[in-house]
Design a protein around this nucleic acid. Structure first.
Lengths: 237, 237
DNA sequence: AGGTAGGTACCGACCATCGGTATGTAATGT
DNA sequence: ACATTACATACCGATGGTCGGTACCTACCT
């Protein structure tokens, strides 16, 4: 009756559906029963692939880390590119994706960064930082050699900047909803992103204004948050 | 038979016992049954004071924020003290407490910052940051006026520094256990705390070496972590 | 002074659901 | 053929939360 699928395929199926359910309802509020129901299998199937629900969470975190690494790696390895440009590229890559999937990112951000998902987020960012930090460290070392950066401890600093960024983004996302009640919050958020960029610039000892960690697309997301149809942009560069 | 206690007294009793149980075993792993057993009351009593287990968590977070504020407030209001000194005092106050209760802090840190308590931590730090940030912002503004600091947006920066600090401390605590397996991790952690201090100095535009956000007592905690009896200190200032 | 109405503080049995286990069985590879 | 994989199903203790009831204090009416 039941068709046996390939091991990795079924496992991916579990991971995918679990991920979207976690995003929807949060890790704690998504039961194993809900997962197996969505996949259309039995409990035994679930515990055949994962020893515990938490192990599934860890595998999700690991996958996220690998994906983050896959994006970052080619940028770092590119020869002949200045360190500052590499940093900008590294952050711009994720920004571009976010801008393209505006609707997705908004709902995703609101739920992923809601503190109902504190554990999920904690695990995923940690893995991502762990795997991405060495790459950023190499960029910083390159910047030191080029004389555009002045950082005493690249490895520690890289880790800190990434953790720092994750924290800032989390705070950012958690306040998105407030914009509805008070549009001024939107300006505050945009300001905080600029302060973040400036802070990183100072930490790296890089020239002011040379980094663009958060580009205009993010600003446009915030701007267009309340009203779906955003008319003329009232930007003041 | 049963003596009726005053409302606030009983509520505080719930909060206190719940807090110590959360610290001991984590939020998720502490059942409502465990709490009422420790307090010595029935299930009905608990749900008479709190609508859900999570509401109790929120009230704990609120209390923590107020306590943090109570420590910071008098330091900020003190007249005639340079901003840099105030910042050092603000951080030293908590450090001193930590050093005195070394044993307590270690167990507390290991559990509080273990990601089993991601939710608890997330709520508490958020409240603390929210309440403490304005005070730090005032210090930064004072530093700007004195010419010892150069910060464009004190409010946002204050918030960021505190969130940043919480993140760093969390990462710090989560790696404490690794020292047992690899003593070199201890050096890494101490280094990361120094990098944190230097980063904040740069963000504030303050003279290098003028901040002491993490004093030697913390270093001594890490040093004495593996062996209980710490003989001669092999410090290299 | 005595009755009683109403609110607060609490009890304890009960419930659906949770994560996880035990055991069985059909399909598949060798 | 036989072991291993890939599930299914029934079941477990524990959990967060509900609910109907009760003891007790206070206030007011007569």
């Amino acid at each position: 009756m039941h068709i046996a699928k390939d091991h990795d395929v079924r496992k991916a199926e579990f991971l995918d559906t679990a991920m979207s359910l976690f995003i929807e309802r949060g890790y704690d509020d998504t039961s194993v029963n809900a997962i197996i129901e969505a996949v259309g299998v039995s409990k035994g199937a679930f515990y055949h692939y994962f020893r515990t629900k938490e192990e599934l969470l860890d595998e999700l975190a690991a996958r996220a880390g690998e994906q983050a690494m896959a994006i970052v790696e080619p940028i770092v390895s590119e020869p002949g590119v200045p360190a500052v440009d590499k940093m900008n590229a590294m952050f711009a890559r994720t920004n571009a994706f976010k801008a393209q999937n505006r609707e997705l990112m908004l709902t995703l951000a609101r739920v992923f960064y809601s503190d109902r998902n504190a554990l999920l987020r904690s695990r995923m960012t940690r893995r991502s930082v762990e795997l991405t930090a060495p790459a950023l460290a190499r960029i910083i070392e390159q910047g030191n050699r080029e004389g555009t950066m002045a950082v005493g401890h690249p490895t520690q600093t890289a880790q800190m900047i990434l953790e720092f960024g994750a924290t800032v983004v989390a705070g950012f996302a958690q306040r998105l909803d407030e914009i509805d009640r008070d549009p001024a919050v939107g300006d505050e958020l945009i300001l905080s992103m600029r302060v973040y960029t400036e802070s990183v610039e100072r930490i790296l000892g890089v020239a002011a204004g040379s980094l663009t960690l958060v580009d205009d697309s993010i600003v446009r997301i915030v701007r267009g948050y309340t009203t779906e149809s955003n008319g003329g942009a009232d930007d003041r560069s």
